[in-house]
């Protein structure tokens, strides 16, 4: 209960800065944001709640130490207390300040480990999205939808259209259906990258020669943004992630369109060479 109450504080503060609600959710940071982005998947909700819980405990600890220090400085400065005591032991105190932190840690660990095991629970996925990291863009493949495959490259500032956020917009967002368990397979074609979408609590390294797996289920339709989260070279800051989540029927319509637009190009490295050439120039 207390947890719910405290969850209102950052939400309330966020509310102060939120723009007028759109029909669709747009999940990225707002200016002067004080707290996490709103959770929009079941794992994200668990992570968000856990973080609120931890914040409460941590603030209490910091305020407690601050209060003690203020009291000590007022009561025991040399003017107020010219003769120092000689106490250097108090067994009861030492036992208490060992046992209480242990208790606090247990109180933290139980919900934390529960959330950890919950996120690991692989519910059966209805579809798979394959994500491949490249220097410096993401490639997406839909192995269950006729191998639709495309690259998702950042839109340069001069090409941005109205309403497209700078450094977060890509030419081909990845489309996913809402309320569907999606298996995510992550790998890389070169160095280690990291595919991250904060509002969905996704963050997993993509490594060459290895496939990582996680899952996501997006609660509501909208735009979800993230950024590469592992230093991968000069344009590390310029390979964003943009997921467009659609209701299932609209997603099916998109799939039909995409099969035509992104006819499988048989793994040919054409787009790679184009991008590398651009990236050779160190400026964006």
């Amino acid at each position: 209960m207390l947890k719910r109450l405290f969850a209102l504080i950052p939400a309330g503060v966020l509310g102060l800065f939120a723009s007028v609600a759109n029909a669709d959710t747009v999940m990225r940071s707002k200016p002067w944001q004080l707290w996490l982005q709103d959770p929009k998947s079941p794992s994200a909700e668990a992570v968000y709640d856990l973080n609120v819980y931890l914040l409460v405990i941590e603030v209490v600890i910091v305020l407690f130490v601050l209060a003690l220090m203020c009291y000590i400085l007022l009561r025991f400065n040399e003017k107020a207390n010219p003769v120092p005591s000689k106490t250097t032991h108090n067994t009861l105190l030492e036992v208490v300040w060992t046992a209480v932190p242990i208790l606090i840690l247990v109180v933290i660990a139980v919900p934390s480990l529960k959330a950890l095991y919950l996120a690991d629970h692989t519910t059966d996925a209805e579809m798979t999205l394959k994500v491949t990291g490249n220097q410096w863009y993401w490639s997406y493949t839909y192995p269950d939808h006729d191998e639709i495959e495309f690259d998702s490259i950042i839109i340069e500032e001069e090409d941005l259209k109205e309403g497209q956020p700078r450094l977060l917009s890509v030419d081909n967002p990845v489309y996913l259906p809402v309320g569907t368990n999606v298996r995510l397979l992550l790998s890389s074609n070169d160095v280690i990258h990291n595919w991250a979408v904060p509002s969905l609590a996704i963050k997993l390294d993509t490594m060459p020669g290895r496939t990582n797996e996680t899952w996501v289920s997006i609660n509501e339709p909208g735009d979800y943004y993230g950024m590469c989260s592992e230093l991968c070279g000069v344009n590390h800051g310029f390979m964003p992630i943009h997921i467009k989540a659609l209701p299932k029927e609209e997603f099916a319509k998109w799939v039909a369109k995409a099969k035509v637009e992104f006819a499988s190009n048989d793994n040919a490295p054409k787009s790679t060479t184009v991008r590398l050439a651009k990236a050779d120039v160190a400026t964006r």
Binding site: T128, P143, D144, N189, P208, T211, N267, A268, P269, T272
Partner: peptide, 20 residues
């Protein structure tokens, strides 16, 4: 059991599973 195939860009091959 599902199958996934990747080819490092340096290798000029097409490599795919024959069954999903």
């Amino acid at each position: 059991v599902q199958f996934d195939a990747n080819t490092n860009p340096k290798l000029p091959w097409r490599f795919k599973p024959l069954q999903r």
